[in-house]
Deep mutational scan, measured.
Amino acid sequence: VTLFVALYDYEARTEDDLSFHKGSKFQILNSSEGDWWEARSLTTGETGYIPSNYVAPV
């Protein structure tokens, strides 16, 4: 499992996005959609889309 960590805070703009804070960790579920990845937050357990340029591999 590849884990990613948030580099910045992000406020969701749609109900499909995940809001998160810098330092939040994610499991990436689908990275084939270009700049928006489907991810599960390891902090909240919620699933949604995150901007790929806001995260980096742990």
Score class of each variant (00 low, 15 high):
V1I: 13
T2S: 11
T2Y: 11
F4W: 15
F4Q: 03
F4I: 03
V5H: 05
V5T: 05
A6C: 04
A6Y: 02
A6I: 02
A6H: 01
L7E: 03
L7G: 01
L7W: 04
Y8N: 06
Y8A: 08
Y8E: 07
D9Q: 04
D9H: 06
D9I: 02
D9M: 03
Y10M: 02
Y10L: 02
E11V: 14
E11C: 12
E11I: 13
E11W: 09
A12G: 12
A12L: 01
A12E: 03
A12T: 04
A12S: 12
A12N: 05
R13M: 12
R13K: 13
T14V: 07
T14H: 14
E15I: 10
E15M: 10
E15P: 13
E15F: 10
D16V: 13
D16M: 14
D16S: 14
D16K: 15
D16W: 15
D17V: 15
D17N: 11
L18P: 00
L18H: 02
L18A: 01
S19V: 02
S19P: 05
S19Y: 03
S19R: 04
F20N: 00
F20V: 01
H21A: 13
H21W: 10
H21V: 14
H21N: 13
H21L: 14
H21Y: 12
K22P: 03
K22T: 08
K22W: 04
K22L: 05
K22F: 05
G23S: 03
G23R: 01
S24D: 15
S24E: 15
S24P: 01
K25P: 05
K25T: 13
K25A: 08
F26D: 01
F26W: 07
Q27R: 07
I28W: 02
L29I: 12
L29A: 05
L29G: 03
L29Y: 06
N30D: 13
N30R: 07
S31E: 09
S31Q: 14
S31K: 13
S32P: 11
E33M: 14
E33F: 12
E33V: 11
G34Q: 13
G34P: 15
D35G: 12
D35K: 08
D35R: 08
W36I: 07
W36H: 06
W36V: 07
W37F: 07
W37L: 08
E38A: 07
E38T: 10
A39S: 02
A39K: 00
R40M: 14
R40G: 02
R40Y: 15
S41F: 06
S41T: 05
T43Q: 11
T43H: 11
T43W: 07
T44D: 06
G45L: 06
E46L: 11
E46C: 09
E46V: 08
E46P: 00
E46A: 10
T47K: 09
T47R: 10
G48M: 04
G48L: 04
G48A: 03
G48P: 01
Y49C: 11
Y49M: 14
I50H: 02
I50F: 01
I50R: 00
P51V: 01
P51R: 07
P51K: 06
S52I: 06
S52P: 07
S52H: 08
S52K: 13
N53M: 11
N53Y: 10
N53E: 10
Y54P: 01
Y54Q: 05
V55P: 00
V55F: 09
A56I: 13
A56F: 08
P57A: 10
P57K: 08
P57S: 07
P57H: 06
V58N: 05
V58E: 10
V58M: 12
